[in-house]
C-alpha cells in the first residue's frame, strides 16, 4: 500500500492494470446497457424508467467519489503524500462530472414524472449542493499557485465538506418536509421491481469502474505533466 503511494511504483503498477480496467469497464457498460434496454417498460413510467439505469449509478458514484476524495485528502494531510495530493486534485472534477450527470439525468427523468425539469426535491437539492462543494474544491485548488499548498487547501475544504455533507442532506430533507407541496412525488416508488435490479447492479459496477479508470488516467497524466514541468525548469531529470 505504502510502496504504491510512491509515484514511481504507482506509475509502474497503474500502467499495467490500466488496459485491463478499461476493458472491464467497456464490457460492463455493454452488458449493462443491453440489459437496461431489454427490460420490459415500467407499468407506470413506461420507457422513461430506463433513464434510471443512467441516473442512479451516476448519483452513487458521485457520492462515493466524494468519500474517496475526502479519504485521499486526509491521507495527504496526515501522511504528506504527494500522490494523495494529486488524487484529491484529480478526483474533484471527475466527481463534479458524475454529480452533474446525476443532476441532468435526474431532471430528464423528472420531466415525465413531475411535469417539470426541475423541482426542489430533497435529493436533487442535496446533489446541487454536492456539485457546489465539488466546484468549490476545484476553484480553491486552481486559485492557489503553489501546487502542494493548493492541494492541501483543497484537501482541508474537502474534509470540512465531508463532515458537513450528512448535515446538509439532513437539513435539505427536513426542508422539503417543511415546504411539502402537493405536486411532489416520491421518485422510484416504494420498492424497485426485481427485473430492474440486475441491470441496475451491472450499471452501478460499470460506472464505478469507469470512475476508477478515469481517476487513474488523470492521476497518471498529472504526474507526467509535473515531471515535464520540472524538466522544463531544471533542464534535467
Amino acid at each position: 500500500m505504502f510502496t504504491l503511494a510512491n509515484p514511481k511504483h504507482f506509475m509502474a503498477a497503474s500502467g499495467k492494470i490500466l488496459p485491463w480496467l478499461a476493458a472491464v469497464t467497456a464490457v460492463l457498460f455493454a452488458a449493462g446497457l443491453t440489459l437496461a434496454l431489454s427490460v420490459p417498460p415500467d407499468y407506470q413510467q413506461g420507457d422513461a424508467v430506463r433513464i434510471m439505469f443512467l441516473h442512479v449509478p451516476a448519483a452513487w458514484v458521485a457520492m462515493m467519489a466524494y468519500g474517496l476524495m475526502a479519504l485521499a485528502a486526509a491521507a495527504g494531510l496526515i501522511l504528506r503524500q504527494p500522490l494523495a495530493d494529486v488524487a484529491v486534485k484529480t478526483a474533484a472534477p471527475l466527481g463534479a462530472v458524475f454529480t452533474a450527470l446525476g443532476l441532468i439525468t435526474g431532471s430528464l427523468w423528472g420531466r415525465p414524472m413531475w411535469g417539470a425539469f426541475w423541482v426542489w426535491d430533497g435529493r436533487l437539492t442535496s446533489f446541487l449542493l454536492l456539485l457546489f462543494l465539488y466546484l468549490g474544491v476545484m476553484a480553491l485548488g486552481n486559485a492557489i499557485e503553489d501546487e502542494t499548498r493548493a492541494a492541501r487547501a483543497a484537501g482541508i475544504l474537502a474534509i470540512v465538506g465531508a463532515v458537513n455533507l450528512p448535515i446538509i442532506h439532513f437539513s435539505v430533507t427536513w426542508w422539503t418536509t417543511l415546504h411539502q407541496g402537493a405536486s411532489i412525488l416520491k421518485k422510484g416508488g416504494p420498492a424497485i421491481a426485481p427485473v430492474f435490479l440486475w441491470p441496475l447492479a451491472v450499471m452501478a459496477l460499470a460506472y464505478t469502474m469507469l470512475f476508477v479508470t478515469l481517476w487513474i488516467v488523470r492521476i497518471r497524466t498529472t504526474i507526467l505533466e509535473r515531471k515535464a514541468a520540472v524538466l522544463r525548469i531544471t533542464g534535467r531529470a
Binding site: 449542493l129 457546489f132 462543494l133 480553491l140 475544504l157 465538506g161 458537513n164 437539513s171 427536513w174
Partner: peptide, 20 residues
C-alpha cells in the same frame, strides 16, 4: 470572490434551519 462560493454550500443548513 472565491470565498462565498466555497463557503455557501457549507452554510446551507444554517439558512435552511434559520428561515425554516
Amino acid at each position: 470572490l472565491i470565498l462565498p462560493f466555497i463557503v455557501l454550500p457549507l452554510i446551507a443548513p444554517v439558512v435552511i434551519f434559520g428561515s425554516g
